[in-house]
Structure formats: structure tokens, C-alpha cells
Computed example of a mutant assay.
Amino acid sequence: GEAYPMGENRRALQYGHFSSSTSVFLAVLMTLLVLATVLGNALVILAFVVEKSLRTQGNFFFLNLAIADFLVGGFCIPVYIPYVLTGEWRLGRGLCKVWLVVDYTLCTASVFNIVLISFDRFISVTRAVSYRCQKGVTRQAVLKMASVWLAAFLLYGPAIVSWEFIAGGSVVPPNECYAEFFFNWYFLMTASTVEFFTPFISVTYFNLSIYINIRKRNLMRAGQPASMSTRDCEMEMRHPKVAKSLAVIVCVFGLCWAPYTLLMIIRAACHGRCIQHYLYETSFWLLWINSSINPVLYPLCHTNFRRAFNKLLCPSKVKVQPQYMEQKC
């Protein structure tokens, strides 16, 4: 039968219609995003090499997030850049499938890791005593990290690989690369609930609970020095700074993911006829921008991470003024 229903054998994503100057400008922007994403997350990964004190259960969740975001910048975006600039997928259907599976898995893993980090922070505040007793990477922590990757793959991977065989044919033209369920509203709505709506509600709940708990503690202490259960910066801040820090985490996550999720669902419902392409494409890039923001948003709020970054970026300053650097953190 007809493999490309409703005239979808045209260029679905409408790329490749840029002037030379626009193409150069876009190429520079995308290259800068790749560099920012790779270097930022590489710094987080290297921090675990230079700073042994980072190798705690909670901090390994940051490592898990950094690995996912590093691969987004190192593989997913570079493969996509020629597709944007030329308007054609020239790497074959096999690599298209691989790229889609990896991209969907990594982006979803990034989201799930953010939920895991927020949950870990929540436990560190609400169950401070038991959390403080945990040292290193426990078996439970390893299982959580592995579960993130397994769940991220299972959400989209099997569908990407097997959809056309179950449906009896492909709806993707030979010179294009997008998932077979690109216009399937029911599947996307279900997947989006797991990938964005539920995580967003969870992250909001965990961070709001952290703020409320810290606020109650500080009120009870009536200005007395606090006994810290972790070395997280948010535990060392007053009521306004805590609120600002946690609000930024929730808002950045929402702003990066909500536009894409909503436009993807609407686009699928109207089969791409009611959403301007540039709006959808802009929302799509916000997902990858989130991977470049995460290294700044999460690890930099921790004393040990900042110390490790100082060792990597300013080794001479650390050697000359170790006590100052420690106090600054």
C-alpha cells in the first residue's frame, strides 16, 4: 500500500531553504551549542576524577545526568546539524534509527535523572539522619541509575525500532528521518505523560517540599547555627535564596520541556497543519539547550563540585590560596 499517507512524502520538517549567510549563522550557533554542552558536561565528569569527596551516592546521580547530556552534545546534535542545513537525511535508514533511539533515550534519561536528583535532595532533607549514614555508592543507588537508562530506552526505543513492522509499512520518506509515531497523537500523549508531565509535577513537588522543610527548620532554630546533613548549597542558604535556587531549577526544566511537549501533541493531533514549523523547531532545540544548562544549574550549587571545578580551571589559584578557595565555596 501507500507508504506515505496524506501527502507526507514531501519534506516534513522543511529544512534546507536557508540563504548562505543564514546557513553559516545557524552552523556557528549550533556548533557553539555543541561545544557548550560537551565542555560543560565533560567538566562535571572530570570533576569526579580530581575530587574524591564527590564520590557519594547523591553526587553520582549528577554524573549520570552529565553522561546523558554529554552524549547529547557529542552525538545527537552533531548528527542533526547537516540534516538542518541541507534539508535531507543522507546517512541511511539504519543510522537514522540508531540516531533516533539514542536521541530519544538520552533526552528522556536526562529528564529522569533530574527527577532522581530532586528525589535524592528531598530524601537528604526529610530523612537527614539515615541519609547521612550512607557512604559511597550503594547498591540501591546503582540500581536507581541503571533504572533511569532502562526506563528511558523502553519509553521510545522499542517503538522506534518496531513501529513500521507492526504498522505494515513506513510513513517516513527515504530522505527524511523522524519517528514513525511522529503524528500519532495517542502514543505521544501517553509518552509525554511519562516523559514530561509526571516528571515536572514530581520535580515541583520535591523542590517545594525541600523549601518548606528548610524554612520550618530555620524557623524552629530561631537563628541558631544549623546542623547540616549534606553539603548542598541550598542547605546553607537563607529562606529567599533557597526559594530562588529551587524555583530556578523547576522553571528552567519547565521552560525547556513544556513548549516542545505541548507543540508535539498539538502537531500530532492536527497532523502538522496547525503549528508553524519554526515554532516546533525552536521548541525542539530547547530540549538540547537544557543539556547545556544542566552542568551550571545543578553541580555548581555544591561546595565539592565548585572546589573540583576550581582545581580543573584554576589550579595555580587553588595551590596559592587553598584556604581562601575553601572559604569562598
Rank of each mutant, 00 (worst) to 15 (best):
F165D: 07
I214C: 11
Y104Q: 12
E195K: 15
P322I: 02
V148N: 02
L32G: 04
E176G: 03
R307D: 02
P322F: 09
V28K: 02
Y324T: 08
A66E: 05
A151L: 10
A12H: 06
V72Y: 01
W185I: 03
S229Q: 08
G16C: 09
R10P: 00
V38T: 03
A66D: 05
V318T: 03
T37M: 08
Y205E: 02
V242Y: 00
Q57W: 12
V38C: 13
C177Q: 09
M30W: 09
K311I: 00
T204F: 13
K241Q: 11
A159Q: 14
Q140M: 10
F153S: 02
Y4D: 04
L286G: 01
L154S: 08
F187D: 04
A3N: 11
T204G: 05
F25H: 06
Q323T: 01
S229D: 05
Y80T: 04
I210W: 07
A12F: 08
A12I: 04
V102D: 01
K244D: 03
V50R: 05
K216I: 02
C329Y: 04
M228S: 06
V148P: 00
F200K: 01
T261Q: 10
S209D: 04
N207C: 11
G92R: 05
F200D: 04
R11Q: 14
V171H: 14
Q140W: 12
